[in-house]
Amino acid sequence: MADAVFRAESLSKTYQTGDVLVHALRSVDLEVFPGEVVVLLGPSGSGKSTLLNIMGGLDRPTSGRLFFKDRELSALPDAELTEYRRNNVGFVFQFYNLVPSLTAYENVALVTEIAAEPMAPEAALALVGLQNRMDHFPAQMSGGEQQRVAIARAIAKAPSVLLCDEPTGALDSHTGARVIAALMSVNSKLGTTTLIITHNAVIQEVAHRVIHFADGKISRIAENAHRKSAAGLVW
């Protein structure tokens, strides 16, 4: 098998909130491979977002090590983490986080201006089926469309990994399925390693692997012998 994109070794994270010590991650070991679609499932507070934030360079583990290819992320200073995010990671969030004062095209171009080897903004938007909405502002688009702009913005820098935290959480079933379809299409055309956090068990059917979280630990890893296409998803 190819070298892992991410390799976590006894990754732990504890937060001190007031007098309470919260164990968000308890000694997690995990490998994620190039081109994989991984769905992270689990109840609130089970540690999946913490893992994703650490993988995305937004947070640091308390102990253990995390490697991106052969760089140890857990040891990088802030400036290098920023550089890592800029060139390697695409984020998609539940609440889109688009810049309201920029059009769809400009939201994507915002990222291509700073990335090392970006795609053309038009191409990224075409990948998510929004080539006709390029000059619309966020306020002129539906939630699903806004989320697809966010996906286009995430992939436009041609990242190695796409990290999605509840990408369909704010969307209805039909729109949500279209967003998942857009992610799958990016994955198959560009081979971007994709991690998706969700509460929605239906989405696991599109993944290569499904990782179940409980209590800050991986409780179970399942492989899908038969992946469903996003078009077949209903919830």
């Binding site: 400036a79 920023t82 800029r86 915002l110 990222v111």
Partner: peptide, 16 residues
């Protein structure tokens, strides 16, 4: 704050 934090996540440096 939210917009600026998003930019940081997208890979903009604090200075930018």
């Amino acid at each position: 704050a939210r917009e600026l934090a998003s930019l940081r996540v997208l890979g903009f440096t604090s200075g930018e």
